[in-house]
Write a protein that binds this DNA or RNA. Structure first.
Lengths: 150, 150
DNA sequence: ATAAATTAGTTAGTATAGCTAACTATATTT
DNA sequence: AAATATAGTTAGCTATACTAACTAATTTAT
């Protein structure tokens, strides 16, 4: 994959890029997952918690959608988060709905975990040159943009 | 998180970029995972299978290390792969060891799955402009480079 | 040459995380 | 008032992750 161009067709390149991005994402998360285990909280709970912390309180259905899982799955994840004291259920005017919010403990743990998780990646980034870092920053943004179209 | 810079210290930026990359990777895989389900094979099996297909046969311990899981976990994953006809165990000279290899069926399914999985991403990429695609290609490369330092 | 230690994998038991189907309770529509 | 729709939960299945404890084979040490 040392990237000599045989074809300039963007469509062709898109598949190659997609493959590389996919592969890179898998490897990235697998490495970082190891660090997550230190928090003693599973990845699904951690990810759901981050939605509550950074995105604010919301209903179970909304959280399920944000996390791309089915409601029963989210129901269990939330159960675990509650047991661990990371989040709580609140009743709402519409009594079918619940309002989920992060506890202070959940918020604290998330921030600590996120920091720990990301710090090894940040360290690796620092071995790059300034312009490379800058480019990587721009491209991270581009990636999120692409994902929003997925 | 709209990221105005209070500090220009690259170390600070690296954390921000690392966070965004981490987040993007999570979202990317979560979206693509949906497509993987079509194959009827779980993500761990799919990932292990890809090691066998693209990296060639190897022992259970080696596969476990490549996949960053413990041997008992890999033992189960392989069990599932065998039941599904995706891989097989072969005896070796050292009778403690086993040699794992992908079956023809496993190889075929992996290639099909990979294609299907990546094609929606490729489609999203095509909605970008030429220079954006080019930049994203650089990201993939740079990202792999960073990962190799992780 | 045997005993001890190491190595490779499996088995057992537990927890999390995903699904569908079926249920309860509340709200909305007819 | 009855029917329908919506929000969550419960039940039951599977996959994936762990540690601890086991078996079998090989290697090392006595």
């Amino acid at each position: 994959m040392t990237e000599s161009k045989r074809k300039n067709k963007p469509a062709q390149d898109a598949v190659g890029i997609a493959n590389r991005l996919h592969s890179a994402a898998i490897h990235l998360l697998r490495r970082l997952r190891v660090r997550d285990l230190a928090s003693g909280i599973g990845p699904a709970q951690l990810s759901a918690l981050s939605v509550l912390v950074f995105g604010g309180p919301r209903s179970l259905g909304e959280l399920a959608e944000a996390e791309q899982v089915r409601p029963p799955t989210m129901s269990r994840i939330v159960g675990g988060m509650e047991r661990a004291g990371l989040a709580r259920r609140r009743t709402t005017e519409d009594k079918r709905r619940i309002r989920l919010e992060a506890t202070a403990k959940g918020t604290k743990i998330l921030h600590e975990g996120r920091k720990r998780r990301v710090e090894s990646l940040a360290l690796a980034l620092e071995s790059l040159t300034e312009p490379e870092i800058k480019r990587l920053s721009e491209l991270a943004e581009l990636l999120e943009q692409v994902l929003s179209k997925l």
